[in-house]
């Protein structure tokens, strides 16, 4: 198990997390006693073959999926056992999501896409407009505020998705294949942006990816196979948090 030191508590941590899917009589362990802790300012890359359980792990860490057993801590708070409404509040206040297919609102302009996230937290009116502008500035889309997603390039869409995720100031960012739909230039740009934001603003960033081009941007690479952290990944994941 990961030992989270008192001096450097993990931003997010999974302890002995197991997720079992049942289909009729059969049981499939998508995750098998996973231990993982990610500190603030750290970029962790989850890699593994399709069906290895990395997206399931991301869902569990994001408090979207409940583990069958084990515990998830979000900034020191035990998420397991919370009710749906409390989990939604926890996600809203602590976790930002970036998706492979962007999941933007196609009918809303760029600034409005960011303002939706702010609206969920009760930030509205001029304050929301200012915050949206700042978030778009941060990802280099200040000149695209009134543009619909369909008029943005793939890279711009993903940067907009990042702006939306970061607008609420989450300490944890979870990204699912954020470069999968991008060419190499845009892919590097997006990952580089995520790393910069992690380092400059002390956010914990966990990225699920198949993309070998982005390995250099990660502080740690965790390999998952058959629902378990593989040998090499385990060694990396086991790196003391204080190191």
């Amino acid at each position: 198990m990961i030992e989270a030191s008192q001096a450097h508590p993990a931003a997010i941590e999974a302890r002995a997390v197991t997720k079992i899917y049942r289909a009729g009589e059969s049981r499939v362990a998508a995750l098998d006693r996973i231990d993982l802790a990610v500190r603030a300012g750290e970029v962790v890359l989850l890699m593994g073959p399709s069906g290895s359980g990395k997206t399931t792990l991301l869902s569990v860490l994001g408090c979207i999926l409940r583990p069958t057993s084990g515990e998830v801590y979000v900034e020191g708070r035990l998420a397991s056992g919370l009710r749906e409404r409390e989990l939604a509040r926890l996600r809203l206040s602590h976790i930002g999501f970036v998706f492979q297919s962007y999941n933007l609102f196609p009918t809303l302009r760029a600034a409005e896409n960011v303002m939706v996230a702010l609206d969920l937290k009760g930030v509205r009116g001029d304050a929301a407009a200012r915050a949206a502008r700042d978030a778009l500035d941060m990802v280099g889309l200040s000149d695209k505020q009134n543009v619909l997603p369909e008029d943005l390039s793939g890279g711009q869409k993903q940067r907009l998705a990042i702006a939306r995720a970061l607008a609420l100031g989450p300490r944890i960012v979870l990204a699912d294949e954020p470069t999968a739909a991008l060419d190499s230039v845009n892919g590097r740009l997006v990952i580089s942006l995520m790393r910069d934001l992690a380092k400059s603003q002390g956010r914990a960033v966990i990225i699920v990816s198949h993309d070998n081009r982005i390995l250099e941007f990660a502080d740690r690479i965790v390999h998952i196979e058959d629902g378990k952290i593989a040998e090499r990944g385990a060694a990396l994941a086991g790196t003391p948090l204080s190191s």
Binding site: F105, L108, A111, V116, D119, N146
Partner: peptide
């Protein structure tokens, strides 16, 4: 910034969803 922002965000999304198709 945008005139339609006078609506609450839920209303704005609804309007855009309706006008989308």
């Amino acid at each position: 910034m945008l005139p339609a922002m006078r609506l609450p965000m839920t209303g704005l999304i609804a309007v855009r969803n309706l006008l989308h198709d």
